[in-house]
């Protein structure tokens, strides 16, 4: 699934790095705890998180994540957006809860990471 398709499904707004149309997302993982994210390989995976700060970006960088859905209508600040661009990470801002986002993407065929 493309990043833009995910954004459409969660009624989200794309910010940070522009969406790479060639990137195929197959799996998702939802967590607000960054060390939980770093336990796994995040190939072809979208992170769904309610955490919205610089550490979301640094963790995504270490995990080689390319796309993060930020739930609960959290607003990344200017510094976070700058980091996202610099690190080539696309952010999708959604008003939906993390649970709802997860449900929508699951139903659309995105696989759980485990």
């Amino acid at each position: 699934m493309t990043i833009k398709e995910i954004a459409r499904l969660v009624d989200g707004v794309i910010v940070g790095a522009p969406a790479d149309d060639s990137y195929d997302v197959e799996k998702a993982f939802a967590s607000d705890l960054m060390s939980d994210v770093l336990r796994f390989s995040m190939d072809e995976t979208v992170l769904i998180s309610g955490l919205c700060n610089n550490q979301t970006m640094r963790t995504s960088e270490m995990a080689d994540l390319r796309v993060v859905v930020i739930g609960r209508d959290k607003q990344p600040d200017a510094e976070m957006l700058e980091l996202a661009e610099e690190l080539d990470i696309t952010l999708i801002k959604s008003k939906f809860s993390v649970f709802k986002i997860s449900g929508i993407l699951y139903e659309a065929g995105i696989q759980p990471l485990y």
Partner: peptide, 10 residues
């Protein structure tokens, strides 16, 4: 965003 107790195991 920390405190999972997963850092040292990672």
């Amino acid at each position: 965003g920390y405190g999972a107790g997963m850092g040292l195991p990672n």
